[in-house]
Simulated assay, not measured.
Amino acid sequence: MPDYHDDLRLAHVLADAADAATMDRFKALDLKVETKPDMTPVTEADKGAEELIRGQLQRARPRDAILGEEYGLSGTGPRRWIIDPIDGTKNYVRGVPVWATLIALAVAGEDGHEPVVGVVSAPALGRRWWAAKGGGAYTGRSLTSATRLQVSKVSKVPDASFAYSSLGGWDEQGRLDGFLELTRDCWRTRGYGDFWPYMMVAEGSVDMCAEPELSLWDMAATAIVVQEAGGEFTSLNGVRGVEGGNAAASNGLLHGELLSYLRG
């Protein structure tokens, strides 16, 4: 198996730079916010963080491609860095600390690009999670000060905690009835949203989570962390990988039942 340790170290360096830039503008009274064509917000901090990461990658990994939420795809080749400069921009704009920079490295394979490195850095929460393929998943302040992540061992839906972002989107896909049935049958539900429920699945504090509509940059970094912590990450139709446009994540023991509720 290839060794991705150097790439993981680089991803941490990129996250450190992004953290400094995004925290500098968090809660700034003069923060500039625009509305994109899809009616979602984008701030100067989103653009600035992605530009910063792209600049460092172009120097450190000039042969690698880069895909980012704000500036699209540049470069070609089997290795592709996938960036969401601020996952949770609406929270960022309102001063809610639940947002993160997502940085992943994916390598081309038979079924599209597979994430092999992921860093999820949430500086306003003082948290960071990361993983590299075959090396496990961790959380902590740095590579040398970290705790290994492990998903829960909850095996029954009535004992399980389920997290989601919102009710929006489930009805449009014909999945609302199953979603509501799941919320009634499980032990606990919470609408944490964005990257956070996936990291809690990896930590074992939540047992399963799902979202009906996502982009590649929303999933690449979180997927490898969940998988390396021993969990499952698929589309709502059960396809492994991060190119299905939606996501279901669990501790693995509950995954079949989770999908049966949400298949639509």
Rank of each mutant, 00 (worst) to 15 (best):
V201N: 10
L29V: 11
L102C: 12
K156C: 10
K36L: 14
A104E: 01
D177K: 15
A65G: 15
G140W: 09
G168Q: 12
L143G: 09
S166D: 06
S161V: 05
E70M: 02
E110Q: 14
R54W: 01
F233Y: 14
A247Y: 13
V33F: 07
G191V: 08
C209Y: 08
D111F: 06
G68W: 08
E50M: 00
A146C: 12
L259F: 11
L258D: 03
A221P: 04
P37W: 07
D24H: 15
I86Y: 02
D16P: 02
A221E: 02
T189H: 04
Y192I: 12
G109D: 01
W129P: 08
L149G: 05
D171V: 12
I82Y: 07
R240S: 15
G55N: 12
D177T: 14
R54H: 12
A45Y: 10
K47T: 11
R141Y: 12
V93D: 00
E172A: 15
A49S: 14
F26V: 00
V226R: 06
L258Y: 05
E203P: 05
G134W: 01
H12M: 06
Y192N: 06
G245F: 00
V117F: 05
G231Q: 06
P197I: 00
S215R: 13
D30N: 13
D19I: 01
L253H: 14
G169W: 05
L236A: 08
L143S: 03
L180P: 04
V154A: 07
G168I: 08
F179N: 05
S121Y: 07
A18L: 02
F179R: 10
E70H: 02
G252I: 05
E213R: 14
M39W: 11
A108V: 04
G126V: 09
L254I: 11
A65M: 02
L259Y: 06
G230K: 03
S145D: 15
I86W: 10
L10E: 06
D87I: 05
P212R: 04
D6R: 04
R80P: 01
G245E: 10
R240E: 15
K47C: 11
